[in-house]
Structure formats: structure tokens, C-alpha cells
Simulated assay, not measured.
Amino acid sequence: MSDAAWLALCRISGLGPVRQQALLARFATAAACFQTGAGMLQDLGLSAKQIHALQKEPEELLTAADRRWLSSPDTDLCRWTDADYPPLLRQIPDPPPLLFIRGQRSCLVQPMLAIVGSRSASASGAITAEAFARSLGESGLCITSGLALGIDAAAHRGALTSGSVAVLGTGADLIYPRANLQLAHRLIEHGLIISEQAPETGPHSGLFPRRNRIISGLSLGVLIVEAAENSGSLITARLAMEQGREVFAVPGSIHSPLSRGPHRLIREGAKLVESAEDVLSELGPLYGALRQARPVTAPANWTPEDPRQARVWAAMDFDPLSAEEIAARCGLTLGELSAILLEMEISGYLTASPGGRFCRLPPVS
């Protein structure tokens, strides 16, 4: 019933991540969102059709593809309420409440770095992307990309043995482009395929920009290797900047159209990198925090050493608070607070709740 309810929420037309999160914040579980009184849904901005759909049993909304997904031993779901929901992805403005996954679930909580770029990559660009991915993967980072032709595919190839995550703009049961089908099967052995789209969702131009926010949202930073000035990779870079992630760019020849995207990003403040070490040195303490094992709960006598963390810890409670409420209590800006909350959540002292709220984890006695 529970998994069916999560999947059924995805099948309600126009019910995107923001409204799904509003429902979860109101009713706590996906199953509780269904067969509730219409009056309780009126103030959530839902349409009459959406409210009508929520009066049904979840199973009534499922397709044959949904039922196959739920019954297959090779497919899985990662729900917003799961302990291994990717911690960085929780921090973006519209995180998907449900992820459809295939492969090694343990990759969800690994520190990730995105490598993206042109679909029409040069031979040199593909070699560069593959080399960066291999070196960064061997350093402990899981490489994320979009399974597109060109730079994306090269990045996945470079990190095949260390672990790579492919984020799809289609359903996770459909590999697009089909030229990368064999690569996708190899990815599943050591890495993970992720999508927020329900099974049998085909390729559609509007879904790929949404896919890009997940690529950047999962990652500590985004590395651009070759991109034209109007490349979709620059959308991923812009989203990364908006999400507070690091943006890196590999420079190229001033004569190559594929250098214009990286050079533009460098002019706008992206870090120019020439080696994997350049990337690792910029990622800083968040990379180290993500590599450490997360404690289940904070020790009873834990005192933050960082004075800013101490202010945040003192301002919080075991009841969820919004970031705005916490910022007002401890006198920090939202930008300053966001990084602190992320470090404390990764370390296992705080947890995020639906609706962008945070609370302390109960201490160990």
C-alpha cells in the first residue's frame, strides 16, 4: 500500500514536487494523502481533478508499468522519508519526493560530483572527461551525469568501476539514447540509474532541464568539459550556482566553439581547473563530511566546536522549524545557514522534514 501510494502521487497530472511536498507536510505519509476529505485539500492549491484523484484508492491510479516496477526484484524506490535519501538533494528548492532507482542503492549517500558537457564532444574533450572521472572516482567521489552522448557518456565510462550515477530525463525503465543501452547496463553493476519520472515516461524536451536540477542537486559541484554557448550543460551550471554548489570548468582553445561555454562560466566566476586535484582542493570540508560515516543520532553530550554550528544547534528543537525560523533565532543569513544545516545533516545531527523544515535528531542516552 505504501509504495503504491508513493507511485500514485506521481501519476496525478500536474502534481509536481512542490505540491507533493505540501501534501506530505500536511499528512506525513503518502498513503494518508489518499481518501482524505476534499475540504482538507482546498487550501493546498490543488485543482478539482487532483482533489478528485486523491479521493481514490492509490491502486486505481497505477498503470501496468507501475505494477511491473513494484513487483520486480531489480527496481527500487527511494522515498523522501527514507534515511538514505540523498542529503544534498534535500536542500534544493523542489526536491523530488520519490526517486526511481536501478542498481547499487548505496551510491545514494556517496559524495558526488557531476561532470557534464557537449553531446558533440571532440575526441580530446571525451578523453579529458573520462580522465577526470577516473581520477575523481578513485579519490572517493561518485560521478554523476545525464547518460547523454558525448561528455556525459565519457564521464560515466571513466567512473564505471569506482561508481557512477546516471540521472535520466525519461522513466528509469527506458534508456535514452538507445546508443548508451550497453553503458547503462554496465553502470547498474557498480553504480546507479535514477529518475524522478514514472515508468514508461518517454523522452520529452521539457523533462531534461528538470533532470539537470537533480544532477546538480545530488552533487557537491559540477564540472563542465566542452559546451557551446547555448548548451544545456550551462543550464546545469546555472542551477548548481543557484543551489549553492561549486562550478568548475576546463578551459580550451579560443578557436573552438565548444570552449565558449566553459570560458563564459569562468568569466562569471566558475573555478578554472586543470587537474582532479584542483577540484578536490576546492570542495573543502563538505567532501570530508560526506566521506565520513553518518552517526545514527547525535551523542547526548555533543557540543559543536564551530561557533556558528553552536548557535544553530542552540536555536533548534526536536520539533521541525523552517530555515527562516532558525535564521531569525540565531542571527544568520539564509545563505550562511544553508551551508551549516547541510554540514550538520550530513554529520547526522539534524534531519530534514517535508516542506523544507529541520529538527534535531534525538540524542543517544
Rank of each mutant, 00 (worst) to 15 (best):
F132L: 12
P95T: 01
R311C: 08
T36H: 04
E196N: 07
S338V: 13
A172P: 00
I340A: 09
L7Q: 15
L265E: 03
A30M: 00
L239I: 03
L207Q: 14
S135I: 12
P17I: 01
V279P: 14
L168I: 01
P96D: 06
N180Q: 05
H263E: 10
E345D: 09
G39E: 04
A30W: 01
D82V: 10
W69V: 00
E325K: 15
S219K: 01
L108P: 00
A293R: 13
L89I: 03
P73G: 05
G202F: 10
E138F: 11
C33A: 06
C142Y: 07
R134F: 11
A240F: 03
S231I: 01
D317S: 12
V279N: 13
T297Y: 09
T297L: 07
E60A: 11
V296Y: 10
E345T: 08
M344E: 06
A227I: 03
S13D: 12
M1H: 14
A131W: 13
L149V: 15
G288K: 10
Q110K: 13
P209N: 04
Q110N: 11
L283P: 14
A155G: 03
R157V: 08
H255Y: 13
A314C: 08
R360D: 10
T297R: 10
W6M: 11
L334A: 14
V247I: 00
G206P: 09
R291C: 15
P96M: 04
S2N: 14
A65H: 11
A352F: 10
R90P: 02
A298H: 03
I175A: 07
P86C: 04
L88D: 07
I326N: 12
E196H: 05
L361V: 13
K271R: 15
A5W: 11
L272F: 12
G331K: 10
A155K: 09
